[in-house]
Amino acid sequence: MSQSSKSSEPSAPVPTSADVARRAGVSRATVSYVLNNTEAVRISEPTRRKVREAAEELGYVPHAAARSLRAGRTRIVLMPTPHVPIGPLYSTFLDELQWALRRLDYTVVQYGSLGLSGDEAVRAWAELRPVAVISLGEITLSARNVATLRRAGARAVITMGPTAVPGAHALVMDQQQIGARAAAHLVERGRRRIGVVVPREAGLELFSAPRLAGARGVAGAEVEALPMAYSEESAAELAARWRGLRLDAAFAYNDEYAMLLMRALLDEGLRVPEEVAVIGADDLLIGRLLRPRLSTVRIEMPTGDHLASLVDHAVREPSEATERHDLMTAEAVRREST
């Protein structure tokens, strides 16, 4: 037999819900109820198990597009992929959120939107007909963008940036309080001339700018912004000119930048905390393993389960846009570096 005739042989038929129903000994409607996690119909656990086992044996997978047509909407929750390093704290939070949404039977789709403007990104997202969009604020959205997503079927548009967007459910993450807590801690320790490390990396100003503003708003603090890249070379360059800056404390954007700077300051012969007090943010475990142990601002984020339930509620019961400002708290944690 020739190679061409082999390749022209028909492939195995794609299993259908009717095949699953026959294998499990139930109706096609029951198969649909079980595999689509329909809550309105009560089906016994043994029957659910039989249907799932039959589907697995046959290799049957429900057709998402067909299910969406029947329901009138998808179960897609679209999350633009962060295109800047957001750090371990936020990465863990986003992982928890995705798992929690999956347990609620949503399909989480991460969309790479690097290089797209607000209008371009929203048109691309709308093509997928998501039932909800969760934006971290890296792409600036407008009221018109929110309206476009809603016309495309999005029942909820949720933003998690430092400011609210008209028409969207806003979960306002107040980054200013992080800078304020750090600067207030340093002032309480008798430090007034504070250098605030601002990352040179593009995109992080979404978080770093309000943290700097929060530090500047603390009474008694004299704040100087200090750009620094996330590299040993940049930290060493800043440490080498530290004495000339006449600063007695540093608040770094987060613990990772703080650890880089503290190591460079020590290499430069500066004593921490005697000559320079150093504090970071995020309360990473590795900061507690350093010597001196790193002071930090501990940030309490909402749990993934809690935020997923808010998304689910917004999808099930669409309402006017709301704002929540109570989902994140911050407190300074004193250790040896201050």
Rank of each mutant, 00 (worst) to 15 (best):
Y106F: 15
Y106Q: 02
Y106P: 03
T107M: 05
T107F: 01
V108Q: 02
V108D: 04
V109G: 00
V109T: 13
Y111F: 11
G112C: 06
G112P: 03
G112S: 10
G112F: 02
G112W: 03
S113L: 08
S113R: 03
S113N: 04
L114W: 02
L114Q: 14
L114C: 04
G115N: 03
G115R: 03
G115V: 08
G115T: 06
L116K: 11
S117R: 05
S117D: 09
G118H: 01
G118N: 14
G118I: 03
G118M: 03
D119C: 01
D119W: 05
D119L: 03
A121M: 14
A121E: 14
A121W: 01
A121T: 00
V122K: 05
R123P: 00
R123S: 04
A124W: 09
A124Y: 02
A124Q: 07
A124P: 02
W125G: 01
A126T: 11
E127I: 09
E127S: 14
L128W: 09
L128N: 05
L128C: 00
L128A: 06
R129D: 06
R129N: 06
P130R: 15
P130G: 08
P130D: 15
P130V: 13
V131S: 07
V131A: 12
A132E: 04
V133G: 05
V133D: 10
V133Q: 04
V133I: 15
I134H: 04
I134S: 11
S135I: 02
G137F: 11
G137S: 12
G137L: 12
E138V: 02
I139A: 09
T140H: 12
T140R: 13
L141G: 07
R144E: 15
R144K: 13
R144L: 08
R144S: 15
R144C: 11
N145K: 07
N145V: 06
N145D: 15
N145S: 15
V146Q: 07
A147N: 12
A147W: 12
A147H: 12
T148M: 14
T148S: 07
L149Y: 14
L149A: 15
R150G: 13
R150V: 15
R151T: 12
A152M: 03
A152C: 11
A152H: 09
G153C: 12
G153M: 08
A154T: 05
A156C: 00
A156Q: 08
V157N: 01
V157Q: 13
V157A: 09
V157E: 10
T159R: 03
M160R: 12
M160A: 10
M160I: 09
G161F: 01
G161T: 10
G161V: 13
G161D: 08
P162M: 07
P162L: 07
P162N: 09
T163Q: 14
T163I: 08
T163D: 14
A164S: 14
A164F: 12
A164V: 11
V165D: 06
P166D: 14
P166E: 15
P166W: 11
G167I: 13
G167M: 08
G167Y: 08
G167D: 08
H169K: 01
H169D: 10
L171D: 05
L171Y: 02
L171I: 10
L171A: 10
V172E: 07
V172A: 01
M173S: 09
M173R: 13
M173N: 10
D174I: 02
D174N: 15
